[in-house]
Design a protein around this nucleic acid. Structure first.
Length: 889
DNA sequence: GTATCCCCGTAC
DNA sequence: GACGTACGGGGATACT
């Protein structure tokens, strides 16, 4: 293997960091985002590539030699913005303090310095990696030069370049010359784009050839353009061609990366207030690889397992051939119990020919030997994203890891701020642990099952690092969970739930693809018909899916009154269109089209693509570490937002069917959010309503309108329902007026009336906001917490948003706690009663089961009872149960 | 051309 | 700005 040298396009990344990183400044008010972004790019390089030779090239200030060739070169470029210019010295300081070679020369651009360095270094036998995203540098790619863009994580070698541009590497320059470059103001041949240029160069091979034979070309506009712009084409090529004879250091050792000056870097980070970087200086420990060993004989494994059986916890990580746990085959397993030793058991490594590598343990034997460990009820099984490993072991070994379990990803989700990356490497970095990345270990291999081809030694190091890192995290989180009194939530709710979610995912749900096929044909027919009518009414064709084009037609051509505006133009959402519907035929048609198109693209067409060929069923992912409130989320596909309203929604639900001989049993909590609110607020009127078992919306309506419940009309109930929902979300009069299509004043009077009647609710809302301002977080009944730092913000919009969050999260989050608890209780009760009902879906306040027909009655009772008794509130929890041959009503 | 933002709409 | 939590399709935009 040749030594690699990384040549970084410094100037380009300064701009990219400036534009790509959100505004950031230190307390002195200096913008720091470009420095931050730039340092991050360098750190990513260091982390992922661990380079030995590095240099960063910068553009020279002022005019460069290309201006002499072409005075308009880069003429459209505005000067560097002041906010960026002040950051550049800090970037240079960072490079200097890090002891990275910096390349710079008056009159020469960064690209040319890179070209020159690439030439001398590849001549010295080094493999050159250009770190850039600029296509102009691709002309340098050859057998010993590749390009890598850390933002795109893609390596461009000659094959990749030729595949992307459709011409040989040597022809790239000629092709670019024809296209030109608007950002550098390189003219090219006007009217020739990448596609045309590709065709021309593929046909004529070079610019010279093209112009030599231009007379043979058929007359066309393109030919005229080519002839007219002959000089421009050749000038463009000269402009784009990089200078390879600039003066750069030739001795590779001058590019060697030396230890950075931590003192200077610390000073720099302190001034810029990059506390996370500051923290890492000198604390970043490389894991000592001598702690890691591969297990290559049964006796060794037996001995290790024997030792671990005496411990109270073990960390496990599986290495497999796929990110999809249901398809994954095992390649190896790593285990550890403390930070002194970690072991890797290679099982399914293959050589380049796809032949199983010698010296690995037999999978059946590994399974037998590990079983006592993984099934031990007295040993805590720790992992990161443990549901994945649980599923793999279930599928491959028909073995279910036994409680107690601990997932560091879920722990992180409970403890860290919302939106934080929960990837193992990212979390470990905070502890100062540097991990080998997946890319580093698999290299350029892009195959799905690439890990199988990693040599067992590298895999051992990588996998052992993972269990080592996971254990480090756990030691940290374990204490934090206790300190924040989140250990009960974690140990008694979230972790026991994990295997249930894994079972739900593995079980999947059956769809009738023929029904979906019929539906698709029908919807497509209707859509085509509505589309034609829309074009007829509009008097032109346009893209109906484009809010912009639609807005143009509705509000500028038809001059219909526009409603609110969005950042990019007129709003064309359902509220606006409904208002216009009486005035014109078009908005009504658009509404019809939108509904159908949404259902068609998101559900009818999409669902069938998720059908597993093996099971014929759809296997969603239930994500336990995503939402800010503690709800689950569902993806690939999302089965928590299957349409339910309207005839079409029902048709889609009909396509979800139980297995042969079984029925769906669906159980949903009635008004769980409002019941939680009643409990929290202790509001007398609300509590009484639920204790009396009244229809809550009707009762609210009766009170607001001051009539007997018997005299409540549909409209009155609708108003009350909107208010009840709005309360839970912290709605304003503005929101309610929009929802109900009434004036703000009317809406406000409804809200006032509501709060007079339900003063306890008002009090609760005020109290929770005060509490949140004090604590900086809010909690649910099971003590799940969510930080709301913006609640003390001086920005009113941010603060009000945080206030609504503070009101909504305890309610939504407690409802999530309750149904999660119910899932545990239902599963246990069904198991105890030996009723073979399986949970398929959780949709926030609803559980859907698949039950053999003859067991439906007993299952119904158990499900309802378990759910209603899941948690004891001051008001009863009520569950409605329905049975069906599909999810349709 | 590709990644990302924005709008929109489905669910609870 | 205006009602909370999600996921995802598709167009427009931004960057190359």
């Amino acid at each position: 293997m040749k030594q690699e040298v990384y040549l970084i396009d410094g100037s380009a990344y300064i701009y990219r960091a400036f534009h790509g990183v959100k505004p950031l400044s230190n307390s002195k008010g200096m913008q720091t985002n470009a420095v931050f972004g730039f340092i991050n790019i360098l750190r990513k390089l260091m982390r992922e590539k661990n380079p030995r030779y590095v240099a960063v090239a910068f553009d020279s200030r002022g005019k460069v030699f290309r201006h002499e060739m072409y005075s308009d070169y880069k003429a459209h470029r505005p000067p560097m913005p002041e906010e960026l210019a002040v950051q550049v010295p800090y970037i240079r300081d960072f490079i200097a303090s890090s002891n990275i070679l910096s390349l710079e020369e008056p009159g020469i651009e960064a690209d040319d310095l890179i070209a020159s360095a690439a030439r001398v270094l590849s001549a010295r036998g080094l493999q050159v990696v250009i770190v850039s995203g600029d296509k102009d540098l691709l002309q340098l790619v050859d057998d010993s030069v590749v390009m890598w863009d850390p933002m795109k994580e893609k390596v461009m070698d000659t094959a990749a370049v030729e595949a992307k541009y459709g011409v040989a590497i040597g022809q790239l320059l000629d092709m670019f010359a024809l296209v030109g470059d608007s950002s550098d103001n390189v003219p090219g041949v006007p009217g020739i784009g990448p596609k045309t240029a590709e065709k021309l160069i593929a046909e004529y091979q070079s610019l010279e050839n093209l112009y030599d034979r231009i007379d043979t070309m058929k007359p066309s506009k393109m030919k005229e353009r080519l002839i007219e712009n002959r000089d421009s084409a050749f000038l463009s090529r000269d402009l784009i061609r990089l200078k390879e004879d600039a003066v750069v250091p030739e001795e590779p050792e001058l590019y060697a990366l030396r230890e950075g000056d931590d003192a200077k870097l610390a000073e720099l980070y302190a001034e810029l207030e990059f506390s996370s970087f500051l923290k890492e200086i000198d604390t970043s420990e490389k894991i000592e690889t001598e702690k890691f060993s591969s297990i290559t004989t049964n006796a060794q494994l037996e001995q290790v397992v024997q030792e671990l059986l005496g411990k109270k916890q073990v960390v496990i990580d599986t290495e497999t051939t796929s990110l999809d746990a249901r398809r994954a085959r095992l390649v190896g397993v790593s285990i550890c119990s403390d930070l002194d030793r970690a072991w890797y058991v290679p099982i399914g490594h293959l050589d380049a020919e796809g032949v199983r590598v010698a010296g690995q343990l037999d999978e059946g034997t590994v399974k037998e030997l590990l079983a006592p460990l993984l099934l031990a009820p007295g040993i805590l099984k720790i992992g990161h994203n443990l549901k994945y490993d649980y599923t793999v072991l279930n599928r491959q070994w028909q073995m279910n890891m036994a409680n107690p379990l601990a997932d560091t990803m879920i722990a992180a989700h409970l403890l860290e701020v919302p939106g934080r990356s929960l990837k193992l490497d990212d979390l470990c970095r905070d502890l100062g642990i540097r991990m080998t990345t997946f890319e580093e270990v698999v290299g350029q291999d892009k195959r799905d099952d690439c890990f199988a081809y990693v040599d067992p030694e590298s895999a051992c190091n990588y996998s052992c690092e993972d269990v080592y890192g996971t254990l480090s995290l756990w030691q940290n989180y374990h204490d934090q969970l206790i300190a924040k009194r989140l250990d009960h939530l974690f140990n008694e709710l979230e972790m026991p739930l994990m295997p249930i979610l894994a079972e739900m995912e593995m079980r999947g749900i059956c769809i009738d693809e023929h029904l979906l096929g019929d539906l698709s044909a029908e919807f497509l027919g209707k859509l085509a018909e509505i589309e034609q009518r829309i074009y007829a009414v509009a008097g032109q064709t346009f893209n109906i899916n484009s809010p912009r084009q639609l807005g143009q037609i509705l509000f500028e051509e038809l001059n219909l009154p526009h409603g609110r505006k969005t950042k990019t133009g007129y709003s064309t959402d359902v509220k606006v269109l409904e208002k216009l519907a009486p005035k014109h035929e078009l908005p009504a048609l658009i509404l019809e089209y939108r509904t159908l198109a949404k259902l068609q693209s998101t559900y009818v067409e999409k669902l069938a693509t998720f059908q597993d060929p093996e099971s014929g069923r759809i296997h969603t992912s239930f994500n336990q570490a995503v939402t800010a409130t503690g709800r689950l989320s569902s993806s690939n596909p999302n089965l928590q937002n299957i349409p339910i309203r309207g005839e079409e929604g029902n048709r889609i639900r009909q396509a979800f069917v139980p297995a042969e001989g079984q029925l769906f049993v669906s159980a949903d909590y009635s008004q769980i959010d409002l019941r939680v609110l009643a409990h929290y607020s202790g509001d007398k009127a609300l509590v009484d309503a639920f204790r009396a078992g009244d229809d809550i919306h009707t009762r609210t309506a009766a009170q607001i309108f001051g009539v007997s419940p018997l005299l409540v009309t549909g409209d009155m109930r609708r108003v009350a329902k909107s208010i009840n929902f709005g309360i839970v979300y912290g709605m304003s009069s503005f929101g309610l007026s929009g929802q109900l299509g009434i004036s703000r004043k009317e809406a406000q009077s409804f809200i006032d009336k509501y709060f007079t009647l339900y003063s306890g609710v008002k009090q609760f809302m005020e109290d929770i906001v005060v509490q949140a301002k004090e604590d900086g977080f809010v909690t649910t009944l099971m003590n799940r917490r969510r930080a709301v730092p913006e609640i003390n913000s001086s920005n009113r919009i941010q603060r009000e948003f945080a206030e609504r969050t503070a009101i909504n999260t305890p309610i939504q989050g407690t409802a999530a706690d309750i149904i999660k608890l119910a899932m545990l209780k239902v599963a246990a009760a069904l198991r105890d009663a030996d009723v073979p009902a399986t949970l398929l879906l959780q949709i926030h306040d609803e559980l859907v089961f698949e039950v053999p027909e003859d067991q439906v009655e007993v299952a119904k009772k158990i499900i309802q009872k378990s759910m209603e008794e899941a948690m004891q509130l001051d008001v009863p929890l009520v569950v409605n149960v329905t049975v069906g041959k599909s999810l349709a009503k």
